[in-house]
Design a binder for these strands. Structure first.
Lengths: 287, 287
DNA sequence: TCCCTTATTAAAATTCTTTTCATGATCGGT
DNA sequence: ACCGATCATGAAAAGAATTTTAATAAGGGA
């Protein structure tokens, strides 16, 4: 577990002096990782022993252990306390985007519901047919991605971003099928309808969405993904990266669950692709 | 700049003793970040002053500064030295995938050609019409993503993953248009043809691909993305995440270049979406 | 109010880190 | 092969930083 979550958890129970130390960590992090215990103590207006105790309280061996933990967490975890890009020049924008993406992954990792993912993977790997639904630029990409990943293992999958088709497919699905749907906002009413319909025939329904959202409420298995977008309206990507990572995890688990079948299918696809190009075997599966 | 690249650069010039220290960092990193200078010196079979000198050589103030730098870089940067997932249980798979994704972003950030990106963004923002091409599950997703991002700014874009259409569109494009194509492998022969055709009419051509690949060779502007996939054939995702991040950067720079126009278009799209749902304004742009 | 618990620190002890200086090795040029 | 210069290294000393100890202060009930 990392320091910042511990800090969040403990902050209320901290004494006034310790709170001053915590504040420095949160506000002037750069200073904190570089300072000696004495400097830090001075800045917080406490004595060095208080700092040592503070570190121990947060689960560290010693002050230097604490600094290492801090630095380690911070590379990724800290940045979300400093929200916006410094300027619109390419270097800063790139840095900001990449940091946000790494953060999204970091937060995702922390909040993953592994049990749900495992269950979802298990159902997917046994499905007679898989329907992957999602609409709007983001979720439809996820639906396509699911198709793209799963068909390679020899599974039967189709993706749709068309509400009408989704409803018809949901109505036609059987109890041995799986419907997996993505909704970033959790408020895709049509998807809710499709899920509801599918559950009437006891089709397994899996939702990748925000927990406690309308979509989450109607799905049998919910893989919660709770990340809020940064306030910059131009940029919805980091959440998508998190979704992609979840799909990746799901697909990998499915692959492991059905190893032999998947390997055969993959080999065939690969041969097909290589024949179609110039025989370079090192290329990707697909482009 | 981070310690690991410095280490890579310097390693050849290091003395034998210093090399032993470097080896410990690379092989037993966990030990290294937690050890005191004395422990580290002992393990490397050198004296503490040698360690101090080693740290200075790598550009750090002191040993403790060095440890902080190390820990900071390591959270993301270090992991790629330990390649494969430990097991196929969900926790390990998730950890492995997320680490790889973060690494892909980390390596991408290091190798970004900002000048090329800036130039590409500038051309995109002035284009009369943008054609986004890509085939195969991965690149076609990127093409769609480009469309999805750019149309929101009021630009004219179309994406295609169909070779025939691509050729026709490339033939029809004018010199005020921009053709942007993605190829993970760089060996998409049809895309090469489309690029070649487009350049005959002096259409601006932008490639997101591996440097020095066939696709890169025919494009006017190359945004190089050079990451090799891990050896696990089940998993091509982390490269895609890097491509997505590049698209994100490009799209953001385009947005900044054409601010007012983009903001208006976005507002309209947002109203449309909100009206269509249940009026919750906090949701994403699209699902 | 008094006593107990907890928080805090000054000072001492300890441990870690760096500097200094001396030694040994290496290398290029005679 | 020899010499001198440069570099690498470590022992010991000096200097910091950190932790422990033990004593004080500050709250919070009985």
């Amino acid at each position: 577990m990392d320091i910042f979550s511990t800090l969040q958890d403990e902050k209320a129970r901290l004494s006034p002096s310790e709170n001053r130390i915590a504040d420095i960590l949160l506000n002037d992090f750069e200073f904190a990782v570089n300072a000696s215990i004495i400097e830090l103590a001075e800045k917080a207006d406490v004595s060095p022993p208080t700092v040592t105790r503070f570190c121990r309280r947060l689960g560290c061996e010693s002050f230097s252990d604490f600094k290492v933990q801090l630095a380690r967490t911070a590379y990724v975890g800290m940045r979300y306390l400093k929200p916006e890009p410094k300027s619109t020049n390419p270097g800063d924008v790139a840095q900001d985007i990449i940091t946000k993406a790494q953060n999204a992954l970091f937060l995702l990792h922390r909040s993953l519901d592994l049990a749900a993912i495992e269950l979802a993977a298990e159902r997917l790997s046994r499905a007679d047919m898989i329907y992957a639904f999602g609409s709007g630029g983001n979720s439809s990409m996820i639906a396509n991605e699911l198709q793209n990943r799963l068909f390679r293992f020899g599974l039967h999958v189709t993706a749709s971003s068309d509400h009408g088709m989704q409803l018809m497919m949901a109505a036609a699905a059987k109890s041995t099928d799986v419907l997996i749907g993505s909704s970033f906002s959790g408020r895709n009413g049509e998807l809710v309808r499709a899920f509801t319909l599918a559950r009437e025939s006891r089709v397994t329904t899996i939702a990748l969405t925000q927990s406690n959202s309308p979509v989450a409420q109607v799905a049998e298995i919910v893989v919660p993904i709770d990340l809020q977008e940064g306030s910059n309206i131009f940029r919805p990507t980091s959440t998508r990266i998190a979704y992609l990572a979840v799909v990746d995890i799901l697909a990998s688990l499915v692959a492991y669950a059905i190893q032999p079948k998947a390997a055969v299918a993959l080999r065939r696809i690969k041969q097909q692709l290589v024949a179609h190009r110039d025989g370079d075997d090192r290329q990707l599966l697909g482009d």
